[in-house]
Write a protein that binds this DNA or RNA. Structure first.
Length: 650
RNA sequence: GGCGGCGUAGCUCAGUUGGUCAGAGCAACCGGUUCAUACCCGGUGGGUCGGCGGUUCGAGUCCGCCCGCCGCUACCA
């Protein structure tokens, strides 16, 4: 029987794991554990992308040999994932020889059959994103449409992959297989992208010798890193090495990633490559949303990057929770709040709220109160005749089915909500039945039955939450004195704990985070406990401030407008010729709807002169005019009195 | 500017094909309970379901327009 093959992207090793990569990997791990628990054989792949020129560059900047650098970083990732209880089956590194052989072989085959051909390339390239951009996409700009960094002009002979040949087949496949790209937003986005027309992509790069050399053509540089990287999914199955046996794993059942690399790469280039190779396509591609922090996209440059382990460690310290359970709590938070189509806010306050509310008060307390009563009333032995009420049994089974369905759909927020319904039901049941009152009335038999519901619920919850919180599930099983966490089908067996079964002493798994209280008994504002521990969490800078040094990098000068004319075939643009203190500059400004050429000639305006030049409508714009923005309309700024052209602005 | 999506209680959000759909969780307040990790249970929230029209016996749920936010894209710079 074919293994359930699940993948994460391989991660760039130029920075350590953060909550973004952790999200993808934790989701993948939870999916993998879920499938395993359901009895499937699972093959779970993650790894590192080490062939990127960017990686080479970062290593050089740090003065470390690149191979040594990637070795160290791969180790950082493996350690981080193990610490987060990620149970992958294979960790692939693209610098491995066997992967390089696969890349070479695929390149050769596609070149032989004409899917890869040699041509010349002139175009704009973003080093950071490792991506070429069609001139149609950037002819008004010289910055990367994705990351905003300056693009480099490349003019080189290189190999192309005939992506355009696969346009209609891709579209047909996507239309015929609704589950292929999820969620729906990404599917629509991909279709939109494809419908604009796919162009052949350059799949070789010169300028760096770090990577897989183009086979049999030593002067053609290395294979494009995306072409290289995507093939890791194939390498990991043993394709090329194991004959037909790789089909016990191929194709992937579920490929997870962030939404940014789904439409353009995993949903177009990747399946097109596979079509060219004549291989079956992945069953399902799933792109999740991103975490945002303080309403801002998380990024290293903004300095709002959290390290998962530090977040977990600081919770452990603040709450007195054992680290493995704090890590599981972090996993729970990631999955409970997992961004699906839209982005979601990550915050320590939110994490704490989930910890106290869902884990300490709900899950932890239910287990603890149940075991406490079992020990107090029954000396820790399951009493005779204990049996689950039919009504509760039905509810448990129904909720378990809903959890299954949600997990299968990679909808962990919904699945966990459904699982937690069980906790609410048992708490209400306890309240109605009041086993403590039954005991006082001497009705021990009924009390035992009621508490039995709590035991079964705890056992079931341990099973249902195992994909999310494996260590916690184990601890629940230990306290219930079960030999192991029940597998999925076994977890829903309702009267599975036998009469006479001995239970362990209860011990809180998630000690509650205590809000601060004043000695006078008046509650004071609860302090976000984690936030006080700034040592343990990543530093968060004020994202919307810059330093004076950063400001000084902007060279703003007063320019005098010598000439102005409309830009042909444009409605918004004026071409301005400026005197910037003896030097003449041409800039293109989007003010034609607000000013006529006559109105601006002779005016003095502040201009940012050290902006990266941009090609706009075929005109090189060498700077940016500063103007007030009034409801989208430009209003020119002038010096208080006439000043020499080229005067600096500070 | 174009295409797509979204805008539901203080916060985070559920709401299939139009008719108990006006909801859940959290926060707050009130009450109850005491087995439990000051926990749990119940109650309360005057939400014009972004705004204005329309279709319909009946619309968060369909249509049009407008406002706001997001994504992709574009003659943003």
């Amino acid at each position: 029987m074919k293994r359930y093959y699940i993948t994460t992207p391989i991660y760039y090793v130029n920075s350590a794991p953060h909550i973004g990569t952790a999200l993808t990997t934790i989701v993948a791990d939870a999916c993998a554990r879920f499938q395993k628990q359901r009895g499937r054989e699972v093959y779970f792949l993650t790894g590192t992308d080490e062939n990127a020129p960017k990686v080479h560059r970062v290593a050089q900047e740090r003065g470390v040999p690149t191979q040594q650098f990637v070795d160290e970083m791969a180790e950082v990732f493996e350690r981080a994932w193990r610490a987060l209880h990620i149970e992958y089956d294979i960790f692939i590194r693209t610098t491995e020889e066997r992967h390089k052989r696969v890349v070479s072989e695929v390149f050769r085959r596609l070149r032989e059959q004409g899917d890869i051909y040699k041509g010349s390339y002139q175009g704009w390239y973003c080093i950071s994103c490792e991506t070429f951009f069609a001139s149609s996409k950037i002819d008004e700009s010289k910055t990367c449409p994705d990351c905003g960094k300056p693009l480099e002009w490349r003019d080189e002979l290189c190999y192309y992959f005939r992506l355009s040949d696969y346009e209609s087949r891709l579209r047909e496949h996507i239309l015929a297989n609704p589950q292929f790209i999820q969620p729906e937003v990404r599917r629509n986005e991909t279709l939109g992208f494809i419908n604009e027309g796919l162009q052949d992509i350059a799949v070789s790069r010169t300028g760096s010798d770090w990577g897989v050399p183009v086979p049999d053509d030593p002067n053609s540089g290395v294979v494009y890193v995306w072409f290289d990287a995507l093939l890791n999914y194939l390498t990991a199955t043993g394709w090329l090495e194991r004959g037909e046996a790789y089909l016990d794993t191929w194709p992937p059942d579920l490929q997870l990633m962030g939404k940014d690399i789904l439409p353009r790469f995993h949903a177009t280039i990747w399946p097109a490559m596979l079509m060219a190779l004549g291989l079956p396509l992945p069953e399902r591609l799933y792109g999740h949303g991103w975490w945002i922090v303080n309403k801002q996209k998380m990024s290293k440059s903004l300095g709002n990057v959290y390290a998962p382990l530090e977040v977990a460690q600081s919770l452990a310290d603040a709450a007195g929770c054992e680290l493995p359970y704090a890590v599981d709590a972090f996993r729970y938070y990631m999955l409970r709040e997992m961004p699906t189509d839209a982005d979601a806010e990550f915050s320590l306050e939110g994490f704490e709220a989930r910890y106290n509310g869902d884990l300490a008060n709900d899950l932890g307390n239910l287990l603890h109160r149940t075991l406490s009563m079992m020990h107090r009333y029954f000396e820790g032995r399951v009493p005779d005749g204990a049996r689950l009420d039919a009504e509760l049994a039905d509810l448990f089974a129904q909720q378990a089915a809903r959890v299954t369905e949600a997990f299968e759909a990679v909808d962990f927020p919904r699945g966990l909500r459904e699982a937690w319904q069980i906790i609410g039901a048992v708490n209400r049941y306890y309240d109605e039945q009041a086993p403590w009152t039954l005991m006082k009335q001497g009705n021990t038999e009924r009390a035992g039955q009621v508490l039995y519901a709590g035991l079964i619920a705890a056992r079931l919850l341990g099973g249902l939450s195992e994909p999310v919180m494996p260590q916690v599930a184990r601890e629940i099983a230990r306290q219930l004195n079960l030999s192991s966490v029940p597998c999925w089908s076994d977890a829903v067996v309702m009267n599975a704990i036998p009469t006479g079964h001995i239970l362990q002493e209860p011990k809180p798994i998630f000690p509650r985070l205590q809000p601060q209280r004043s000695t006078g008994g008046t509650p004071v504002q609860a302090q976000p406990t984690l936030e006080r521990d700034t040592q343990a969490t990543a530093t968060i800078t004020m994202p919307d401030t810059i330093t004076i040094d950063e400001f000084k990098r902007l060279q703003i000068r007063i320019a005098t407008v010598k000439a102005a004319e409309p830009v042909p075939k444009s409605t918004k643009l004026l071409k301005l010729t400026l005197d910037v203190g003896g030097e003449e500059r041409t800039i293109v400004a989007g003010i034609a709807e607000d000013y006529t050429p006559e109105q601006v000639v002779g005016k003095q305006i502040p201009v940012l002169v050290n902006l990266q030049p941009a090609l706009i409508r075929g005109i090189v714009s060498e700077g940016m005019m500063l103007a007030a923005d009034v409801d989208g309309k430009a209003v020119l700024l002038h010096p208080d009195r006439e000043v020499p052209s080229g005067s600096g602005v500070r």
